[in-house]
Design a protein around this nucleic acid. Sequence first.
DNA 1: ATTTATTTTTAGATTTGTCTAAATTTTATT
DNA 2: AATAAAATTTAGACAAATCTAAAAATAAAT
Lengths: 228, 228
Amino acid sequence: MYNFEKNIKMTSLTEEDYIKAIYKLYRIKNKPVSTNAIAEVMEIKPSSVTDMIKKLSAKGFLEYEKYKGVSITEKGKKKALQIIRKHRLWEFFLVEKLNFKWDEIHVIAEQLEHIDSDELIDKLEGYLNYPKFDPHGDPIPDKHGNITHHKDFTVFDLEEGKQAVILGLKTDNADLLKFLDTHQIKLQDTLKVLAKNKFDNSVSIEINGKQINFTEKTAKNIYVKTIK
Amino acid sequence: MYNFEKNIKMTSLTEEDYIKAIYKLYRIKNKPVSTNAIAEVMEIKPSSVTDMIKKLSAKGFLEYEKYKGVSITEKGKKKALQIIRKHRLWEFFLVEKLNFKWDEIHVIAEQLEHIDSDELIDKLEGYLNYPKFDPHGDPIPDKHGNITHHKDFTVFDLEEGKQAVILGLKTDNADLLKFLDTHQIKLQDTLKVLAKNKFDNSVSIEINGKQINFTEKTAKNIYVKTIK
DNA sequence: ATTTATTTTTAGATTTGTCTAAATTTTATT
DNA sequence: AATAAAATTTAGACAAATCTAAAAATAAAT
């Protein structure tokens, strides 16, 4: 339709969700992502994905070759990082200013990330004092879309006896966050790998004076950097 | 479609806009509002309005009789006041915390008012210290939808020689707000009516030691209460 | 009380984003 | 290399929210 006065937004809310999802998938795989993979993370049918990736390619956010999957263009990447920036700044706001717990903020930030105003987000950033990481330890892109990602190095990659500091989480999943809460595990905590268990791939660690067993899944979702 | 996990919102963004607009129209006229009136304030065609008011009546937000206009139900009123509450709390946040000017906040708050989380809005309210009025002097409904409206008494209603305090504005229109800014006129300022001019219905006032002429339109958009 | 003008509604079309079911292409397996 | 399985696309349908144009109802004016 005609977009004169109001709602001059050039990407719909839904388009933004696709761009963000595809950006994230592309970033971890670093090669064209499949229609099915997108459909799965977005919980919609592959046929819907096909339609939308055609549209977003036509708009220059994606590069798409039939039956070969999609990759994200520079333009798409920039758009994705804008959305991620908004998401993470709002998450920081929710925890730091409104005292939400870290497992409650994701769903709210999913809505707030679509609010369209550069001035708003820049002022919010200043108000929050230019945070570099969100409450889950994820880096916050600057206004130009610059970001330094975590090294893909998790608790699961640590050798026995090694000590490390928790830098961030690979997922915002509320259940993981609650699990960490119940064991009083926070970002920046130091841990030591007591044993890696061959049988079930779990990892026994010591943290804050206590001993816990991480399943493989949990261990692979916690970013760390080794110390000493 | 089916609204299982995500997006359990029972009113669409668009429906919320209608409910708010109809609530406001109904409140000032206090009788059924016409299809055309709704179409006009929402800048859409009357035929679209007809469709939507049928839908919202079926959902119990409006009471509608064909060709006779619509009124708002208790349920609709409650929903409208929830939205208005969100709008005005966000406006307060934008001015008080992010240092926006009062003529810049309306469009952003129009987006923020649709964010769906009671917990968010209640925490925001606490964080802002339970403000009673937004930056334009409009009262903020409490979480139960209670609100005390301004008396409908404006600068235009003042007699010559009377003194009064500015309580609020009838409209959020950015041009009016900028006009007031250029003359350094704020809420709570005291003014005195020097003359009411029969010829063009303008009102000459003295405010902050300066003398200004308000047009009828401007005078009718500024709520006041007389003093002494 | 007719006629005219205005308002409101209906009918049918369009856009966006989704779906199902069938067709096609690619990948994997024998 | 032929066939089976899996992934992807196409085709056609649908719901939401809008539009235009025409029909119907109400209000205003002679």
